[in-house]
Amino acid sequence: MTLQTTTGPTVGIGWRPEIAEFVAGLPGLAFTEVIAESLHHPDPELLALRDRGVRVVPHGVKLSLGGAEEVDPARVAHLARGAALVAAPLVSEHVAFVRAGGLEAGHLLPVPRSRAALAALTRNIALTTAELDVPLAVEPIAALFDWPDDEYTEGEFLTELLDRTGALLLLDVANVYANARNRGQDPVKVLESFPLERVAYCHVAGGMEGDGLYHDTHTDPVPSEVLALVGEAEERLSPEGRLGYLLERDGGYPPGHVLAAELDAIADAARLERITRRAA
């Protein structure tokens, strides 16, 4: 399935209750994302955005597509209901697992880039898309460690996964930066190894240095290296068929003018219109 878009890429921001007022006040906002699991109790302010024509993408974090166990049908059904509720153009989840043996990790964990994990992901994505009326985009995560079982590079693994499943790619530019930096790789080369023709939209987020590693925290400012990689990504992506760049902030919310400046910096890096003021 491909993504139908009516406009070219724009800049968006993830909707969170703490910044609902700021998000609603963005004059140029064309797309946002909501944590899919929070749609058990949809916020009226989010539904108002939907009614205004803002495209809302449910972003799941607990499906555990990369788990060895089959995805929970109740979670899949909830994702499908959430997509219908917000009239979503697509939904997204992660190339990750979050539980095993009945234990919740409370975190997105990397899967081994192995044939066994590829088989588990392929089965779980098939079980999920069978219940969805809209496309599914999957997001490679930022992880501080790799598995000793790895048989593929990240680019090879994703290309094979998307070929097998027909899923789209949610390209998190900050995750590419974080992983490349922590593995001592060139982020642009890693970016180029991904199946970029499958990108549905991109994430951008902040992070910080700690314990000799780069942490993709979503609670810190977006570093200039990530903004530079946004520019590199934009040069390599198709001008159509994707929603654009979405800023993820998950805590430590700064004042609105600081968030607005970050959104402007992302727009400038991608050479897109700023969304913080009305189009001329």
Partner: peptide, 17 residues
Amino acid sequence: MPREEPSGLAARQEALV
């Protein structure tokens, strides 16, 4: 649907968690 069973993966993931 793939026939390969993700053998061993469940135990490996559980040990890591």
